[in-house]
Simulated assay, not measured.
Amino acid sequence: MRDNTREILDMAGLATPMALRVAVTLGLPDRLPGDGSPTDDPGNGSPADGLPAGALAADLGVDPVALELLLSHLVTLGIVERAPTGYRTTAFGANLRSDAGNGLVDRLHLGAAGGRAELAFVELAHSVTTGGAGYPHRYGRDFWADLDEHPGLRESFDRQMTHRFHEQVPRVVAGVDWSRFATVVDVGGGRGGLLAAILAAHPGVRGHLVELEATAAGARRTFHAHGLDERARVTAGSFFDPLPAGADAYLLVDILHNWDDEHAHLVLGRCAEAARPSGRVLVLEPVGGLRSESEFDLAMLVIFGGRERRLDEFRALAAPHGLVLDTVTELTDQRCLLEFRLAAG
């Protein structure tokens, strides 16, 4: 049997993922010159060929010896490079700058919702033992309560969700005959990017977005920016409370996998209640065995106590609410669209 010890240790090591997160949290790729960044210009006081670790440590208020150790590992990873007068950010490392436009800073920064949430993976043993989220075990409150307590976390989470879904919006809009529905309620629809795109592509459709007030304000701005004030409404509220009734479709995008079965039942129940007698409930998210990744599945568990449910689990979840799974469409490389109808009688 081949000795795979080194390979396994490399897979298990925490030094690299934490070094990247701390580098982003300290803003090192932004602060160091290199790769055409603004600090490349000697006229702004930063030498184009590198910034000394001591000066950087003084600027950040961190230990200079420890910072040098971090920078040395970042050199090994190709994030920064040594220069005659200190350190520079490489072209590869520039992907971790705040202006890179790839969403990585919100995913990795330890003060952002994404970076903070991933630290809950240290509680994975707790989640596997209990079946519950590791996040409250680490932080003393669940993820959503943490966002309520810290508005900055909610802001970063909203940005992360908008960026993560942005590339898939055109396929979601094009892959569904939204014109079938005169009215669409986007339940927990974030800042409204998807609903705005649906309405823009289908002038005969009207939309109504339900979201917590802190995020609903962003949705109002989105609809206004797209000239949709006449066709899009925003209601501040929770999807655990009664929803606007009588719409043709109730859309849940990446909602149910964020919750355990008890809470997922509450959300589906509110949708079914509002959709009666002839509305549809549309669930758009990864589906176990079709469009899901094992690593992301563990993230849903450890952060939220949720999971990427399989089709039989969706059917079981929907049945008590009189919902029948009608069609399943593998809509993108990451998500399926499940369309539920209300059972007759």
Rank of each mutant, 00 (worst) to 15 (best):
D10R: 15
G13T: 07
T16W: 14
L20I: 05
L20V: 09
R21Y: 14
G27C: 01
G27I: 02
D30E: 08
P33M: 08
P33L: 03
S37Y: 06
T39N: 14
N44A: 01
N44K: 05
G45T: 12
P47D: 11
A48H: 04
P52L: 01
A53Y: 07
A55S: 13
A57F: 07
D59E: 15
V62P: 06
D63P: 09
E68V: 11
L70N: 12
L74Y: 07
V75M: 05
R82P: 12
R82N: 13
T85W: 15
G86E: 04
T89W: 15
F92R: 15
G93L: 03
L96P: 05
L104D: 14
L104N: 10
L104E: 14
D106G: 11
R107W: 11
A112R: 09
G114V: 00
E123G: 06
L124I: 05
S127Y: 13
T130G: 01
G134R: 04
Y135K: 00
Y135S: 00
H137W: 04
G140V: 03
G140Q: 03
R141K: 15
W144I: 00
L147D: 02
E149A: 14
H150Q: 10
G152R: 11
L153P: 11
E155T: 13
S156G: 03
D158T: 02
R159T: 09
M161C: 04
M161K: 09
M161T: 11
H166C: 03
V169I: 14
R171W: 07
R171F: 05
V173M: 13
A174V: 03
V176E: 02
V176C: 01
R180W: 13
A182W: 06
T183F: 12
G188W: 12
G190F: 05
L194V: 06
I198Q: 05
H202C: 01
H202E: 01
G204M: 06
R206Y: 10
H208M: 02
L209N: 06
L209R: 13
V210N: 10
E213C: 03
A217P: 01
A219Y: 14
R220W: 00
H224M: 06
A225R: 14
D229R: 13
R231F: 02
G237R: 15
S238G: 06
F239C: 15
F240L: 12
P242H: 08
L243I: 13
P244N: 06
L256E: 09
L256F: 12
H257E: 05
N258A: 13
D261H: 10
H263S: 09
H263T: 09
A264P: 10
L266K: 09
V267S: 00
C271L: 08
E273Q: 15
P277T: 11
P277L: 07
S278N: 12
G279T: 07
R280W: 02
V281T: 14
V281L: 07
V281Y: 08
L282H: 09
L284A: 10
P286L: 02
V287P: 08
E295C: 08
E295T: 14
D297R: 10
L301N: 07
F304V: 03
D312C: 03
F314S: 03
F314N: 00
R315M: 13
P320D: 08
L323M: 06
V324I: 01
L325G: 02
D326R: 15
T329F: 01
T332A: 00
C336L: 07
R341Q: 00
L342F: 07
L342D: 02
A343I: 01
A344H: 11
A344Y: 05
